[in-house]
């Protein structure tokens, strides 16, 4: 085992372990905080894989934005802060069986398929400069389409979550009250 493999294995154990805590803990807020740890360990894994710009984007968007959004959702649905016993559904054992089968199949396929493959890691392969040049030269059209999709989804989220739009009101009368 090389040093990279040892570091990546440790980060992977942290990521998978905190992922298991996310899906098994009895406290909603703790699940969100374990999710932060899992995403942070994955960002470290991206750094080991020399994808440093992806790692920073992971930290900024996932740890910074998505988890905060999920915490807002937990607060706004007035979830209990302490232990709640009914977070797991009754088909937990069927779900565990399906997950174990998925893990067995995927791990077997991955190990059998890539047993002898090694990947060349060279520094600078995922720097902001290279990725920026790649995004704005080759992938600029998907980038622009994605910006339109983000705008549409955020407008949709605003329309879904604002009150005062009802069938009883005429068109244009609900613009002042947000």
């Amino acid at each position: 085992m090389s040093g990279q493999e040892i570091v990546f294995t440790l980060l992977g154990v942290v990521a998978v372990g905190s992922g298991i805590m996310v899906v098994t803990t009895r406290r909603l807020v703790h699940a969100a905080l374990w999710l932060v740890l899992s995403f942070g360990a994955l960002a470290g894994g991206y750094v080991v894989l020399t994808a440093e710009f992806v790692a920073w984007v992971q930290v900024l968007i996932y740890v910074g934005a998505v988890v905060v959004l999920l915490l807002f959702g937990i607060m706004l649905t007035r979830a209990p802060i302490g232990d709640s016993a009914d977070l797991d559904s009754g088909n937990r054992w069927a779900a565990a069986a399906v997950a174990a089968a998925t893990a067995a199949v995927l791990v077997t396929v991955m190990v059998m398929g890539f047993r002898d493959e090694r990947m060349p890691l060279r520094a600078g392969g995922g720097s902001a400069g290279e990725l920026g040049a790649s995004v704005f030269r080759t992938w600029v059209l998907p980038f622009e389409v994605l910006s339109v999709l983000l705008l549409a989804s955020l407008v949709g989220a605003i329309v879904l979550s604002r009150t005062g739009i009802g069938p009883g009101r005429g068109p244009g009368s609900g613009e002042g009250d947000g």
Binding site: S2, Q4, E5, F8, T9, G12, A15, V16, G19, I20, V22, V23, S38, L42, G45, V48, L49, A95, V98, A99, A100, T102, A103, L106, V107, M110, V111, F114, R115, E117, R118, M119, L121
Partner: peptide, 18 residues
Amino acid sequence: MHLAYPTVVAALLFSVGV
């Protein structure tokens, strides 16, 4: 770096999500 490490981590994380 061996290719099996990240792919196995990804497979386990996916199963946890499932």
